[in-house]
């Protein structure tokens, strides 16, 4: 479904991605782990084209989306993104945050968009807060709205960029449980995370990145029980 093919990306003199290749099948949940600065987030941002790879390709259903001339906006509607800092639109109500893409990208009527949005807000358990401003919600609630906002566009793939890293510890589990449900429902997901519990239990595959390359990848059991790469062994000893 997604194929990342020898992607390289530098910021100035810093080579953040040094040739990353990765295939994600439809319905698969892949967790990407690694230390800060290992290129995890940049990799994710290359998939939805918030960053342009310097070289290499990203394919979505066999179609290269990193080619020039590809409709970036249309491509992004197929890829949902959840950010570390939620990035809800503070000047809009919770409901409007979820409907704005439906109305102004999908061009649905207010009524149609509202109906879809309310269903999505119910999925994340926040329909009762539809009329509130995001600032009145807790961090966990805000992140759940952000998930509903991305899901409302009915994407083929969901990307999570450290979706729980900015949350207070007691709020993390609500967001994680929604992500687990989503993974269980067959959504294709790439999850950059520091939550080793999620990586171990909810993903089919774990990818360990170090210094801009995929240092090791495999099923969670293998990665966590029998790590091979010395960097991964050291990383796990620090985070577990």
């Amino acid at each position: 479904m997604i194929e990342i093919d020898r992607v390289r990306k530098s910021f100035g003199a810093v080579a953040v991605l040094r040739g990353v290749s990765l295939k994600i099948d439809r319905g698969e949940t892949v967790s990407v782990i690694g230390a800060s600065g290992s290129g995890k987030s940049t990799l994710l941002r290359c998939v939805n084209l918030l960053e342009r790879p310097d070289s290499g390709r990203v394919l979505l259903d066999g179609v290269c989306i990193t080619d020039k001339g590809v409709d970036v906006d249309a491509t992004r509607t197929r890829i949902g993104m959840v950010f570390q800092h939620f990035n809800l639109f503070p000047h809009m109500s919770v409901l409007a945050n979820v409907t704005v893409g439906l109305r102004h990208v999908r061009r649905l009527t207010a009524a149609e968009a509202g109906e879809i949005a309310m269903r999505r807000l119910e999925t994340v358990g926040l329909a009762h807060l539809a009329g509130q401003r995001p600032a009145r919600l807790s961090g966990g609630q805000q992140q759940r709205v952000a998930i509903a906002r991305a899901l409302a566009m009915e994407p083929d793939v969901m990307l999570f960029d450290e979706a729980t890293s900015a949350l207070d510890p007691e709020l993390v589990k609500d967001v994680l449980s929604i992500m687990r449900d989503l993974a269980g429902s067959g959504m294709t997901m790439i999850v950059v995370t520091h939550e080793m519990g999620f990586a171990r239990e909810a993903s089919q595959r774990v990818v360990f990145m170090a210094d801009g390359i995929v240092a090791e990848s495999g099923p969670p059991a293998q990665i966590f029980e029998d790590p091979q790469h010395p960097r991964l062994v050291r990383f796990l000893s620090q985070v577990l």
């Binding site: 939805n48 918030l50 906006d73 249309a74 992004r76 509607t77 890829i79 949902g80 993104m81 950010f83 800092h85 990035n87 809800l88 639109f89 503070p90 000047h91 704005v100 893409g101 102004h104 990208v105 952000a146 906002r149 991305a150 566009m153």
Partner: peptide, 25 residues
């Protein structure tokens, strides 16, 4: 800048994102 990124990741064009999300704020 996360506001622009969030708007773009929903599939909005640069100008739509500016008009609906960034400029009003």
């Amino acid at each position: 800048p996360g506001q622009m990124q969030a708007a773009r990741s929903l599939g909005m064009s640069y100008f739509t994102a500016m008009r609906l999300v960034v400029v009003p704020q």
